[in-house]
Design a protein around this nucleic acid. Structure first.
Lengths: 389, 389
DNA sequence: GGTCGCCTTTGGATCGTTCCAATACGCGGT
DNA sequence: ACCGCGTATTGGAACGATCCAAAGGCGACC
């Protein structure tokens, strides 16, 4: 490879060097079977010799395919989204597709700006984790622009593809588990943002409580931000009440960690004096002391699913939208008191460690669509989170 | 805005609609002062009316400026990198520049592939958090390709721009603090990867130990991965020894959290039975129970600094490389036993809460380069981590 | 009235690729 | 000798912007 090129090497240069035409070189680039084997090898050699770099932008200008997709995250600092990105990025990479990533930091304004920018870059499609307050019209607009889009996690419009999990079933299972352990006053903590995720997670909690004839007083539901600090403050507030709850279902693991910190501040031990359940099963949940009982949704697999669905949609833009929902699994560890002699020591259904190992195995497998498509969605879109909410 | 366009709107269309030439529209796009105010407004109106979308790729083809940079992270799931990305992204956004983000997941192979892809996309520059084993030749190559590049955190080549922190000073201060509290057998935990960061953090620890005439036996340095699990395992191993240490300086906060989990497993309380110090001061460090004493390096500001330096370098590609080093600050909380009556209760120099508040204030300020340039670097590049290491 | 200069505007060439219709070529069959 | 056919290759026209040299219009000044 020559050292100090200041002029870019083009197809023309390669063609001249290999003694063929520009078109032939282009065909070689595309891996066409039309080109004779000998020619193909000669051209490849020339490309290497000249240090040729493919110009994706020039190609895109003509072909209208960029082999690049956009990924718009609502909050990259949340561990769950980092893990999701990890899976998604790997899947796209595997498919020879690059990701143009942007972090909206939960700002509707930045989200709008980034969508604009993605269009300017002519990405082939978009994975969107919509920020709170995203209007269904935004999704409609993308459709009108014919920009393939997959909504991830938070459902805004049922008229576009969606990859997520059955949140309602998740918190239902978590709450039911706590009830089975003997708890009666169970709080829900977190879910401040007005998103489909919040609605469904709170909904599942309510379903389970109602089914067991338990009171769902509004002051058992503390809506707070998804931070450790907010979780700690929320549980402090609950413990100050006359008849405090004995357990809490948390919006996600981060809030649950905060709750455990808050318990610590009062000299209470999670899993012994108070039961805590999280949601997401992010990497650190297993390591916690006590280990966090939580609803696992395999972030990385969800990322892969989103990537696969988007690529599929790019290939066939006019098919009806698909809703992919993974089935969450309750992982029982110590923080709810069901294991290692805490609280009441009742026998448990799920072995956390085993389930975890299983999940690991799946995660490390070769890449292929492994999510489950389910028709009976737990999401009931038209309603609370309509336009402008 | 018309509904069902299937043909893209080009400058030509806008020009026709506004009754001017293509060139004039282009000038308007560039915000040129040459165009008369009335014309400018007419053109803008036409753009809006037709739903015009700027085609960055077409522009790039001609102008050789994409107003897009690449950000290559070595591991997006590490909270520190997520925070860095947060700051960097915001700064670029502020400068009207997009970021093409990729996650190498600590794989040299993926890093190479992504650099290739960035070149194909003709990004204006690259912020590179080099993965372990990155050769200085990689950086030289970027230079030969005339692709502006800023190394972040990990220094690979002194011949290119670098943004990082004075790691050696950081662990030196942390270790000195522990020695001041009366500790004599102090371990270093973490820093498995062969990077300049590992070298300098271990170096600072050694410096302080040596300066105080303390033994630096090799079995006090446990090199392990930057995970909670590895930290827990490492401290367990240390405690099994004949004469275990009474304190540990950790490679970063994540390892420190692991160490605290490991202590918990042995029934020991960090800050009372064993002193723990971290590095980075990631968001959650303050919330921990006990609060983590750690070396703060303000990840978001570092991200901003990297963005600024890169933009500067793109503007002036031929200037000599700059090394920006921020000065780390020790934040004393409870985990080292210096506060709240732990261990020996000696008076302390730094108030964690105040320092934190100060940092917050700076972080939220308007965007401007606030890092400190220092000539006396703590990094001694040629050596241990040379080519191919 | 001609010329100079200033402010605006413009046409054409160009960037590096892909697409498409056309061609060159070897070869067996009539 | 000509045709038909399949395989391999090619030149020219896009794609949608920017750049540049040049020109149009209009006062002002000599």
């Amino acid at each position: 490879m020559p050292g100090g090129h200041n002029q870019t090497v083009t197809l023309e240069d390669v063609a001249r060097h290999a003694g063929v035409s520009r078109s032939t070189v282009s065909l070689v680039l595309g891996g066409s079977r039309l080109v004779a084997r000998a020619t193909r090898e000669r051209v490849s050699a020339s490309m290497k010799a000249l240090g040729y770099v493919y110009n994706r932008n020039a190609a895109l200008l003509r072909s209208h395919r960029s082999r690049t997709v956009g990924l718009l995250l609502c909050q990259i600092t949340e561990p769950f989204y980092a893990e999701l990105t990890d899976g998604l990025d790997a899947a796209l990479d595997h498919a020879g597709c690059g990701a143009f990533l942007a972090n909206a930091a939960e700002s509707l304004d930045r989200q709008t700006r980034f969508i604009e920018r993605m269009r300017e870059h002519h990405v082939d499609g978009l994975v969107l984790c919509p920020v709170e307050g995203t209007s269904p019209r935004t999704i409609e607009q993308l459709r009108a622009w014919r920009l393939p889009c997959v909504q991830a996690l938070r459902l805004v419009s049922a008229d576009a593809d969606f990859v997520g999990t059955d949140n309602r079933a998740g918190t239902d299972a978590a709450t039911t588990h706590l009830i089975g352990l003997g708890h009666r006053r169970i709080a829900f903590i977190g879910g401040l943002r007005r998103t489909s995720v919040s609605r469904d997670r709170i909904g599942g909690y309510r379903d389970a409580m109602r089914r067991h004839g338990l009171e769902i007083s509004n002051d058992l539901v503390i809506r707070c931000a998804s931070t450790r600090r907010a979780g700690a403050e929320a549980v402090a507030m609950l413990l100050d009440r006359g008849e405090p709850p004995t357990a809490a279902v948390c919006y996600n693991d981060v809030v649950a960690f905060g709750v455990m910190f808050g318990l610590h501040d009062r000299g209470l031990r999670p899993g012994r004096d108070f039961a805590v359940v999280g949601f997401d099963d992010i990497d650190e949940a297993e390591m916690w002391r006590p280990g966090l009982t939580t609803v696992a949704i395999d972030s990385r697999q969800l990322g892969r699913a989103a990537a696969d669905l988007l690529l599929q949609r790019i290939a066939a833009p006019d098919e009806a939208p698909t809703l992919y929902l993974t089935t969450p699994r309750l992982i029982v560890r110590e923080s709810c008191g069901a294991r290692s002699g805490g609280m009441d020591g009742r026998a448990i259904a799920t072995d956390g460690r085993e389930a975890r190992a299983h999940r690991r195995g799946r995660t490390d497998d070769a890449h292929s669509p492994r999510y489950e498509a389910r028709e009976e969605s737990s999401c009931h879109w038209p309603g609370e989170f309509g336009p402008g909410s």
